[in-house]
């Protein structure tokens, strides 16, 4: 067994060339690894990191969008329900109003027709009465002149008949 290397060291036998070469080797190794492995891997890691964070952001945005859309849909649904109710009630009241209007119109028309008919009837009645009055008077004069040989004047007879007819009217 040799002595412990540290105890056996003399400065002249120190392998300083190794020190220098190891420095060189280590630095070269570091540069090579940096160029061939470190940077590609780290660039890729950075890319992956940014993509993941982008994806997460996008997912959050999409979720937000979907939520607002769902909210909108729900609101629209609620609104459409109340709208439908309103439409139905509008239609009902509108129908009622139309019905009322039609009834009123019909009533008015019926009244007009009734008054017209009444007036006409009255008028034709008076006409008929007037013409009948004259005819009856003549006929009565003729009949009475034939029946009664006595010469009553025509004026006396007319007065008599008119009085009689007035009595009929009352």
């Amino acid at each position: 067994m040799s002595l412990h290397p540290l105890i056996g060291l003399k400065l002249s036998s120190l392998e300083l060339g190794d020190v220098i070469l190891y420095f060189v080797m280590f630095v070269v190794l570091m540069l090579l690894i940096k160029h061939f492995a470190w940077e590609p891997i780290n660039n890729m890691l950075e890319k992956r990191r940014s993509q993941i964070s982008n994806d997460l952001d996008n997912a959050a945005a999409s979720k937000q969008k979907a939520q607002t859309l769902a909210q909108e849909r729900e609101d629209a649904l609620k609104n459409s329900r109340s709208e439908a109710l309103e439409i139905v009630s509008n239609a009902k009241s509108h129908g009622k109003a139309t019905q009322q209007q039609m009834l009123d119109e019909a009533n008015n028309e019926a009244k007009v027709i009734k008054t017209n008919a009444l007036q006409e009837a009255k008028k034709s009645k008076t006409d008929a009465l007037n013409s009948a009055q004259a005819d009856i008077a003549d006929i009565a004069v003729a009949i009475s002149s034939k029946l009664i040989q006595k010469n009553l004047t025509a004026d006396d007879q007319k007065d008599l008949i008119n009085n009689y007819i007035k009595g009929l009217d009352d």
Partner: peptide
């Protein structure tokens, strides 16, 4: 003038 330990190198 430097010692090189070829084994180590």
């Amino acid at each position: 003038g430097l010692n090189f330990n070829l084994t180590n190198i």
